[in-house]
Computed example of a mutant assay.
Amino acid sequence: MRLLPEKDRFSLNETRPHALFSFGTLLDERVQKTIFGQAVPQSPAALAGHATRPVRITDPEVIATSGLDVHLTLERRIGAEVEGAVLHLTDADLAAADDYEVDDYTRRRVRLSSGASAWAYLDARPLRSASRIVIVGDSIAYGRCDPQGGWAARLAVGHIATDETDNRVFNLAVPGSTLAEAAEQTPALLPARRPDTVMVAAGINDMASAGTDSGPVRLEESLEALAATALAYGARLVVVGPTWLDEDRAPVYEGLSFTHERASTLRENLRSWCAAHHIDHLDPWEPLRDRPDLLADGLHPTPEGHDALHRHLTGLAF
């Protein structure tokens, strides 16, 4: 944790472009003075569709600053609302707040009850606090080559079992889908399902298309549209993919070329975009890496491959 130098502290003429929703220790003036150098401007706000639960803190610096070893974190709950305030922060303030928060939290965009968007610190495990999950994507998310429904069906079984009353998983993946198609179709799919989390597992078909010079641009446009859609519905976007593929056995479809180079490029593009935009990215590459025996056709996982993916993703997300 760092204390801002005097030159970086608040002045009346300073631009404060960042809105950060807080409901816990960051509202404490003593904590603000330690982190930011002085109290910062704030205004009342609320966050609908959320409740709080306790998290035990072990970082001694954070405990010393807040005076507490148990903080609160947000979890999703339909009909609930968390009262708090929006802190108006400079770039340096926001960096200091990031430095203060422990690894249990990560900064993500949320939609306030007023309809405005703001930053908030959420559970770093993107599905641990989720209740209603919508999955959109391609044939791997759909579960092709697995009569048990793939990793998504396994995720649904475990998630629903923890809370039969409130937890739901809606797998709306369509084989052959691109990210662009997912971005176009998703807005119409969300209202009836009231998701708090949208998982998008697609993109391999975008990168496999012939003539991919515009691929990265199209990819970013699709991700930006999906992020905007999720935020508009108060949902958290989680990007999944891609999986490792065996280029020698990958299927050949008209106009598509599934290569290791293109899959690797897609992986790096997704990781970079998500990191730059504070969006959760779950990387399913490693469980299948150099395991062609876990791929039915070089691209689609076998049931055993989907088991491996499910275990891996569960370990990252819950």
Rank of each mutant, 00 (worst) to 15 (best):
A46N: 09
A202F: 11
E247L: 10
L190I: 03
L74I: 03
H281N: 00
G234L: 02
G241I: 02
N171M: 05
G37Y: 08
A118C: 02
A97T: 07
G241Q: 04
A275V: 00
E29C: 07
L155Y: 10
V40W: 11
R218I: 07
A156Y: 12
A51G: 08
R291Q: 14
V134H: 05
N167R: 15
D196E: 05
P175Q: 06
L231T: 14
A235P: 03
Y233M: 09
I160N: 03
P175F: 07
T34Q: 13
W285A: 10
V31I: 07
I133N: 07
H278M: 01
L288S: 11
A192Q: 13
P187H: 12
F21V: 03
A80T: 05
H306C: 02
I35S: 02
E101A: 07
G211K: 04
H50V: 08
T106R: 14
R16Q: 10
R9D: 08
P187Y: 10
R289P: 00
P303M: 10
A173E: 11
P292W: 04
E221N: 13
L282H: 01
D297C: 03
P54D: 06
E286G: 02
I57M: 09
G115V: 00
D103T: 04
A124S: 15
V169K: 09
A250E: 07
P41A: 06
H312T: 04
A156N: 09
L20R: 05
R168L: 08
Y105C: 05
F318D: 12
D8V: 04
Q42D: 11
G215A: 15
P303N: 03
V31M: 04
R128G: 07
I135P: 06
E286S: 06
T73Y: 01
L12W: 14
A250H: 09
I204L: 15
A202Q: 11
S264R: 14
T229D: 00
P292A: 01
T212Y: 12
W285V: 10
T34K: 13
A45T: 05
T197L: 00
D206M: 09
E247K: 07
G115M: 02
Q148R: 15
M1Y: 08
A51Y: 05
S66Q: 07
A225C: 05
A124G: 08
R30Q: 15
L47T: 10
T106D: 14
L266R: 06
G315V: 11
A130G: 04
R249E: 15
L155G: 05
E14G: 12
P175E: 08
P17F: 12
A161H: 11
V217G: 06
R249H: 14
F318Y: 15
R291C: 09
A276T: 11
A308I: 04
P147M: 09
A228C: 03
V102D: 13
A141T: 08
L237V: 01
S22Q: 08
G137W: 07
L20C: 01
I35D: 01
L26K: 02
A124E: 04
L74A: 05
D307N: 15
A263H: 12
L288E: 11
A51P: 04
P60G: 03
A317V: 02
Y253C: 03
E221H: 12
L299E: 01
I204H: 13
R249S: 13
A51R: 15
E14I: 09
L219Y: 12
A201W: 14
I78A: 15
L231I: 06
A227G: 04
E221K: 06
D307E: 15
E81R: 10
T73P: 00
